[in-house]
Design a protein around this nucleic acid. Structure first.
Lengths: 238, 238
DNA sequence: TCCTGAGTAGAAGGACGTTCTCGCTCGGAC
DNA sequence: GTCCGAGCGAGAACGTCCTTCTACTCAGGA
């Protein structure tokens, strides 16, 4: 709900809301502004908890305490813990997508754009080495931390939340295809899903194979990119 | 521990145990046999619970009740619920690896072997459509169901449990490489991890991209195989 | 006979998420 | 200034799990 509100005054998704609606909305604001502020305090508290304490997990109690608000308020704004997680996840996806888009727009070559996307997203998804809060490198950290639980428990909502990232990658893929550096005729949206999944949960693959991942592992990133590319690139040589 | 015992009399992995050791072991049996039987009852109960009830989750209480044993016994044989899950997971991986190995050994062409492995493992990892218990199609179902939690909470043990499957795929990859149908110089063990991860959690990629997976989805399997192959195959054309 | 080891039955403890109750407070209408 | 009710803080209470602990049983061997 809060996220919808946010979306409403940031970019009207459905239709461009009449001035009347906007006026009415603004007149209801007195309460709304406070509410949004409160919601934000919960979100901030949760983010801080994830940043510190090295464990990405937190209890509702902790969030409530750190936010300086009450349990009652929490359940007034969130239907449950899962909604808080969902909100954080949406935020995370959104900011990650923005970050990647910025990183990419400077580049013209479609293939290089795709490579940058891949490598940078890979980097963002690597688990943080220690208790070091990583709030400075742009987007919200620990994107994949939530994903797992949401993906299984609330696939519908998780799916919605992923849209910005999936759409971006889909576009990048299509542009690369248009430029002839990527095979045409693929179902790019599904490919995007596969790629995002493979990168997000790359940490699992290391565990499965018994290897361990070093933070900022250039080699693994290159390996994954190589694997991906030669399954996609038009050029010969496998 | 129980699983080690099982492995010991099924196929001696380390070295072929002398008759003396076997005799000694058998002499200790009176208690041991009962213990193994009890452990097995817990395992069976858990499997039945996962097979029915459509939800792959169960509580320790349920397992205890269904097994007709006591809570006390449970904690006498398992250090906690996670050990039960681990035991089930090991079993699942082992039987899956066996199943795949059998499926493969009839085939001579290295590339076709790899393809069969991939497609069949893909099929096995697809979530069951409904409450239909799938115990008849060979290996234990729902392999990826546990994986997730174990991989994050107990990476060390999960890693160990994965060994049979990883080794098998690694071998298949190396043979394909030796035959010249797969690039040489790759780190096959890591590739195996990536591939297994990508297939196991393929359901996620469908959710991420917003698609839904039909059970026994030939097309998705083919798509994934195609993606994988053209990143690995020696032949030209991307 | 007594003792021990393995079992059963089930209460108790501790973590969490979630709900509920009791007041307090504060902003605005009069 | 006064009053009122929605919003909110504090935190007790509840339900579900996993886990531990206590008390009792029972078979078999010194």
């Amino acid at each position: 709900m809060a996220s919808n509100d946010q979306a409403a005054d940031a970019s009207p998704a459905e239709r461009p809301a009449t001035w009347r609606e906007l006026a009415v909305a603004r007149s209801l604001d007195p309460a709304r502004v406070r509410a949004e502020k409160r919601v934000q305090r919960f979100l901030d508290a949760a983010l801080e908890l994830m940043a510190t304490s090295s464990s990405k997990e937190f209890t509702v109690q902790e969030v409530v305490e750190r936010s300086g608000q009450s349990l009652r308020s929490f359940y007034q704004y969130f239907a449950g813990k899962h909604e808080l997680l969902l909100a954080l996840f949406e935020e995370s996806v959104r900011s990650t997508a923005e970050h990647l888009e910025q990183l990419i727009e400077a580049e013209d070559d479609p293939l290089e754009r795709l490579r940058r996307f891949t490598v940078e997203y890979f980097r963002l998804c690597q688990p943080a080495p220690k208790g070091k809060p990583a709030s400075k490198d742009g987007p919200t950290p620990a994107l994949a931390e939530f994903a797992q639980q949401l993906l299984t428990d609330h696939p519908k909502e998780a799916s919605r939340a992923y849209v910005p990232l999936v759409s971006l990658l889909e576009r990048v893929l299509e542009q690369a295809a248009a430029a002839g550096v990527v095979r045409s005729g693929l179902r790019y949206r599904r490919i995007a899903g596969v790629v995002l999944q493979a990168i997000s949960f790359n940490a699992f693959s290391a565990t499965i194979s018994g290897s361990s991942v070093k933070p900022d592992d250039q080699e693994s990133a290159a390996e994954l990119w190589d694997l991906l590319l030669h399954g996609i690139a038009t050029g010969e040589r496998g």
